[in-house]
Amino acid sequence: MKPPKFDYASPDSLAEALELLARGQGEARPLAGGQSLMPVLAFRLAAPALLVDLRQVPGLDRIDIGPDGVRLGARVRWRDIERDARLCTAAPLLAEAIGHVAHYQIRNRGTVGGSLAHADPAAELPGIAVASDALVEVASVRGQRTIAAGDFFLGALSTALEPDELITALVLPPWPARRHAAFEELSRRRGDFAMAGVAVGFELDGNARATGTRIAAIGAADRPLRLRTAESALDGRTVDARAIAEAAAAASAEVDPADDLHASAAYRRNLVGVLVERAIARACPPPFNRREAA
């Protein structure tokens, strides 16, 4: 379908964009790449009175890497992330997962802020944000605030953003040099939304014991989830076959996926366990990832 009617503004400063969102009293929506919002409009799932295009707002397209971690501006595109070689060391989980995000043409326009604001339960970036203890920076005419990723996603297509607030950046905290990570997902076509996906990160001490374990799942609930029981099953233990199997079983038991036309709940539940197992095994660096060790 065609989108419903709306007005359009293209402010050239953040202040003006925030002013327009505030004046919209909940009827104004920000527009960046439009790769999530445009389908929502085409399906007429939303009918905002005003779209505030961010294309001329300066500064939102920057990727900054510093002592506070990696700061991805809201208008940074998948393409920009894919092509920034610094992220391989500064944000390995993100660099690893980015290949799963959307199709070629979508990656040329889809943005960090758009993905977070859309909050699809199967989207990769929200899962990475939750796994990384990332912070969502938001701004409004009332000021700025920072929302922990774990508190940001409230449900399917639902976030903690107030109607007048704009996401300005996602901050991924500094990546410890000894932290290993892997991202695994299953989708019917590469680039489609995942049937389920898993992000895993942990550090290894001298005895191959996992510390600081984080395991997150996408497509397994109405929002990206940290799988705390699975994390506890692995954390502090030697990463061997038994520990991995127990973490995978805990992950399967912990998620509460829904049935839909792509996969049944039972399939998804099993899949989450399989993906956790694969991700942990693959995250282990040599020599721990040898078959006999894993």
């Binding site: 439009g34 790769q35 445009m38 295009d53 040329n108």
Partner: peptide
């Protein structure tokens, strides 16, 4: 499809392939 799934409407904007059904003319 008119919602970004089929790719038939792909055009090139400043060298980059994009879905023209997911892009507003005013953008």
């Amino acid at each position: 499809c008119e919602h970004g799934v089929c790719g038939a409407c792909t055009v090139i904007i400043d060298g980059e392939a994009v879905r023209s059904c997911l892009t507003l003319a005013v953008q």
